[in-house]
Design a protein around this nucleic acid. Sequence first.
RNA 1: GGCGGCGUAGCCAAGUGGCUAAGGCAGUGGUCUGCAAAACCAUUAUUCAGCGGUUCGAAUCCGCUCGCCGCCUCCA
Length: 464
Amino acid sequence: MTKKKEVFKPRREKEITFYSCGPTAYEPANLSMCRRFVVADLIVRYLEMKGYNVSSYMNFTDLDDNTIAGAEEAGMDLTVFTENYIQSFLSDKDTLGVKRATGYPKASEHVQDMIDISHELVHKGYAYEKHGSIYFNIAKFPNYGKLSGIDLSKIQLGKTVDLDNYEKDNPRDFTLLKRSTLSELKKGIFFETEWGNVRPSWHIECSAMSTGYLGETLDIHTSSRDLMFPHHENEIAIAEALTGKQLAKYWLHSELLLVDGKKMSSDNNNVVTLKDLLAMGFTGREVRFLLLSVQYRKPINFSIKRLENVRTALRRLDEFTSKLLCLPPGRPHPEVTAYVSAMEEQFFTAMDDDLNVSVAMAAIYNFIKKTNPILQVNHLDRDQKDYILEKLNQLNQVLKIFKLQGCPLEPEIDALIQLREKARVEKDWQTADSARNELAERGIAVIDTANGPIWKRVVETEED
RNA sequence: GGCGGCGUAGCCAAGUGGCUAAGGCAGUGGUCUGCAAAACCAUUAUUCAGCGGUUCGAAUCCGCUCGCCGCCUCCA
């Protein structure tokens, strides 16, 4: 609320309530949306690592203008139409390594709450009915605009809305419940109330679900910057008019994902979805790392070239962990423990400072830079390797980008590697190369090092 | 018009008053190697969009200018 960094203090000792505005179920999640998924995931994972118990919710908006229009166009039943997208959001989250939230409420399942809220607001004088729709009266809520810092007297009215479609008393007011149209009535998209048949509008949905699941005041509310005004202002107005209490202690807004400097959105006709990238051969892990590697309050300019850079960066990390996992242990190194501590300290200091992932990653790269030469001359014993792996695994609980799943060789692959090594010793290059080719066909790259061969999968699988 | 954000190397990106301007990618040179791939090592900004000011000292604070972006109440 202060627009500054603050020291985070939860309301209760170890329990945190966390809410994110989720997507609307009328189109597949584009990368902008994916960034919100990943940022929310990063925050939750980091808080959990810090020992907090996080109740996290992300809503799915499955009842609004877009979903109704989308279902109409597709000639589908609304719930069937939205359920497809909801399932695809969940599968995208899995692909991106996003931990499942405590719950994913759907707007359509909380309409009664929204109607109750509207009742209460009308009763308290914060809202009024006009021609069968219910509007929030902004004049009654003097705190309006605190989050975004807007000055209501100076905004341009009707910039993005055709005000002729509404019968508001004041154009600054916003809609809570909307009178159902004839075609909605025909399809059964309406809810009976004392004001007639209505359906909820966007802003009230988040208020109803966030407070409905997490109580009157939540610790953290996240979403992206472009939703600050009007959506979050309205969400606050509704909730705070209702309860008289602060809706959320901390607001974290992630910046936009851009393409050539422009917001990725259907309006700009530059949408790239996760599935598009998967179809091009990129992995969820690569996309996750791209979305993660910039601090959440900075914009990310997306490009394929950038994804390719991420791929090579990840390859270096993989190379390091493969060596750690696959190479036989050697002599102990006196200082490697200190390197690990330095990495940990820098990592946590950076993450504590508003999730500064760039600096946190630098901690890891610095560690790799120091440890690589040691590994090169086989100067780490078994315990030290296990210790490093254990620490990397800990950091990976937050980042979810390392591959630390051991070096388990399938017997036939192991046999091929052995065969190739034997042939190499005997300088039988033909046999050695054919073994290498065969491994390549199975998606395994062999990397010769001074201490023997290591292997890794070239074609990435989505295992954890 | 109002509010907010951004501009640091070829690209990405930290740093927001004072140690040599982190780190990554790409590049270049070298090491290793049967070949290959990868890896490893070294190296890469007298300068932070421009101009002016404050200061012993500015990428960092202030003012102006330029360029780009987001939001403005039914796109999420």
